[in-house]
Design a protein around this nucleic acid. Structure first.
Lengths: 230, 230
DNA sequence: ACAAATAAGAGAGCACCGCTCTTGATTTGG
DNA sequence: CCAAATCAAGAGCGGTGCTCTCTTATTTGT
């Protein structure tokens, strides 16, 4: 019967989900460094070795959490973009930036997991790429809309960056001018600099009104990409 | 005698230095997560408990390494600024940014230690502040020189940021205009976004010619702060 | 329908970790 | 010179990730 075949399968997805949920709880509470397979198993009433039937190692569990975190962040950004409605591209950009920051402040350990220090040698498993790209793709989409609807301000590139900018444009958005793509990639990285500095305490005793500071900085980023405000 | 008093004291500083050196070796090799007191002790031919006479905990050892890393980075930045000589402020800025990036690429695990994810809850011990400030102070100095010698381009602030910008300026550089200080703090954070993305693999398959890309982005940061090129 | 294959949980165990406490030797300062 | 401070060493506690074996329950193929 279809049910008999499903008993094991169903149990498997449920247990897998329960493990991830508990792991996410511990991650949010104490950070990635203190996530312990034994503690997760203990909390779930299993024995630690049983966990290895679901995740072959601690790193694999963390990778699953990383993908979830990327998706959660990506969705938050997409929702924010939808919510803001049909406004000027610059305002959409700022809304997405603020969504990223809000998500980071609400999920600091998860943000640290994906944008903190993923072990400098470590290169992300292929599986993470689509989830990790969501925010970037969203920002590209905003710039593309701006370019098609009202155009963007363009500043010439230094000669040494021409070939690289053309290559990036061909990869990321062949319909957009290379200098805009180059500016966008830089702005994308810079956004995470702003968020990281706030989250990791580098702004302690330096920036007090973080809201206002961030909003202005995000707007300046939009400006640098060539987006305009109404 | 002066020597007798010095036997213990001298041994102490030597052993302390040896511990830090070996720890730094392991940090550079395997990252902060894998730094093990027992392994350090083993390598030094001591027993692990003896290490606790010098550093009361693993975190204290790490804090010592953090301070050293900040100082190493700060000195690299200062040396680069000295070396570049009497050029336009924008070029000094770019030189310092490149020094930060070069240092990060040369010491990835140490960079991750200080600018990665310092455990979101964790707030840096007071002792780290002076060392951590060196790069920031250097950048402020460059902007100050630019302001006094040739002036900087100033763009007005949104009203909501006025008070905060004035507060920051009063704290960091009372002789500089608030909008310049605000732009500088943002640029400072953004610089670390650029470096972090490259170091932590976010630019994999996206940016290839990292040198050229970074140089351009750093120059754009300088522009955003109002610095000019000759 | 039943035997074989497979998946899952339990338990013991290995090698490591940070950290504490006690013990005995050595150096220091009054 | 002797008491006090300092330090290396050892044993030990509770924890970790991970492996291996054993037993039991489910799924599968005939």
């Amino acid at each position: 019967m279809s049910t008999t075949r499903g008993v094991r399968a169903r149990a498997r997805v449920e247990v897998t989900a329960a493990i991830k949920d508990e792991a996410r709880r511990q991650l949010a509470a104490d950070g990635a460094a203190k996530l312990s397979l034994r503690a997760v198993a203990r909390e779930l009433g299993m024995v630690s070795s049983a966990l290895y039937r679901y995740f072959p190692s601690r790193d694999d569990l963390l990778t699953a959490l990383i993908i979830d975190a990327y998706d959660s962040l990506g969705e938050a950004a997409e929702v924010a973009d939808d919510r803001v409605g049909d406004v000027a591209p610059g305002q959409r950009w700022v809304a997405v930036c603020e969504a990223v920051r809000d998500w980071a402040l609400a999920h600091p350990h998860e943000y640290a997991l994906i944008y903190g220090s993923p072990v400098p040698g470590y290169s992300a498993p292929e599986a993470t790429i689509p989830s990790a790209s969501r925010v970037g793709l969203l920002l590209i989409g905003i710039v593309r809309d701006a370019y098609q609807q009202r155009g963007v301000a363009r500043t010439p590139l230094p000669a040494e960056l021409e070939p690289e900018a053309q290559r990036m444009a061909a990869d990321l958005a062949p319909d957009l001018p290379p200098e805009v793509i180059a500016a966008m990639v830089a702005a994308w990285a810079q956004l995470y600099g702003l968020v990281g500095f706030e989250l990791f305490g580098q702004f302690n005793n330096v920036v007090m009104d973080r809201e206002a500071f961030f909003r202005h900085a995000a707007a300046q980023l939009a400006h640098g990409v060539g987006l305009v405000f109404p």
